[in-house]
Write a protein that binds this DNA or RNA. Structure first.
Length: 265
DNA sequence: ATGACGGTGTGGCACCGA
């Protein structure tokens, strides 16, 4: 059973690529971020035709998230309960599995622009709100998957230039402490679990995003900021976690690529 | 230090992302 996350940076532009990717990668669950469209513009029929159910939560121009599921999703919840947010960043739903129901939380985490800005403060508050939410979800749902664009590098191994970018956005100690706190709730970074050796050399690192500018992908100027986390109850079932770089080679690619976690019986 | 690229909006550039 596969769970994937993909920041598509405009679903309007990337829809054909998502449909193609699903045909080649018929995952059970695909979480999308940065839809950049309102719900009335969501291409529901295209996903139904592709054999997927869709739950979505969009807004104009920015943000927006969706969960595509082979099985019917239930108990869909939008954004973080008890955290007031004008931006559409989180969608949660429950899907059946052979181990029982699995709760999925799909998030487009705040970018934060730069330390010291209002946006960074929003990012910190949002992350605290999310942590309270996930603590509660874990109590109710032992089988929990948290996926999305986290906009945080966990370690220096997750950045192409950790020295040059030290304490800049996505690299700050404050952000990394927030990510650690999420993991401390009892969530496992599936990719790190499967690839535990922390690379120092850029060529050996794993990235899920590359800058559009300055031949970022070709020069491997990337970050690992997209994650799939699994709760302790699911940890024994984690078979693999891969970053699929092939869509980054498409014409008009998203700057992010899919991350796929597979659970085995 | 800046901007580079790409997407959206009601635009002739600004804002945002990472």
């Amino acid at each position: 059973m596969q769970f994937a996350t993909w920041n598509v940076n405009s679903l309007t532009v990337r829809l054909p690529q998502v449909i193609d990717w699903l045909a080649a990668n018929p995952v059970a669950v695909l979480g999308l971020q940065e839809l950049k469209l309102t719900d009335d513009k969501f291409p529901l029929q295209a996903f139904l035709d592709a054999g997927y159910n869709a739950s979505f939560f969009g807004q104009k121009t920015y943000n927006g998230v969706a969960l595509l599921t082979k099985a019917q999703a239930t108990n869909v919840v939008k954004n973080i309960p008890n955290f007031t947010d004008e931006q559409a960043r989180v969608i949660a739903a429950t899907v059946p599995s052979s181990w029982g129901d699995i709760r999925i939380v799909n998030g487009y985490f705040v970018n934060g622009q730069a330390p010291g800005t209002d946006k960074f403060e929003y990012k910190m508050n949002w992350l605290r709100g999310l942590r309270d939410y996930l603590r509660n979800e874990l109590e109710k749902n032992p089988r929990l998957v948290v996926m999305g664009d986290f906009n945080i590098t966990r370690d220096d191994a997750d950045s192409h230039d950790p020295e040059g970018l030290r304490e800049t956005i996505h690299h700050t100690t404050l952000e990394r402490e927030q990510l650690k706190a999420l993991l401390a709730l009892g969530l496992i970074d599936a990719h790190r679990l499967v690839h535990p050796d922390l690379a120092v050399d850029k060529k050996d690192k794993f990235f899920s995003w590359w800058d559009y500018r300055d031949f970022g992908f070709r020069r491997n100027r990337g970050l690992r900021i997209d994650y799939v986390l699994a709760s302790e109850a699911l940890k024994p079932h984690i078979a693999s976690c891969t970053i699929d770089k092939t869509p980054r080679k498409n014409e008009r690619p998203s700057d992010h690529t899919p991350v796929v976690m597979e659970l085995r019986p």
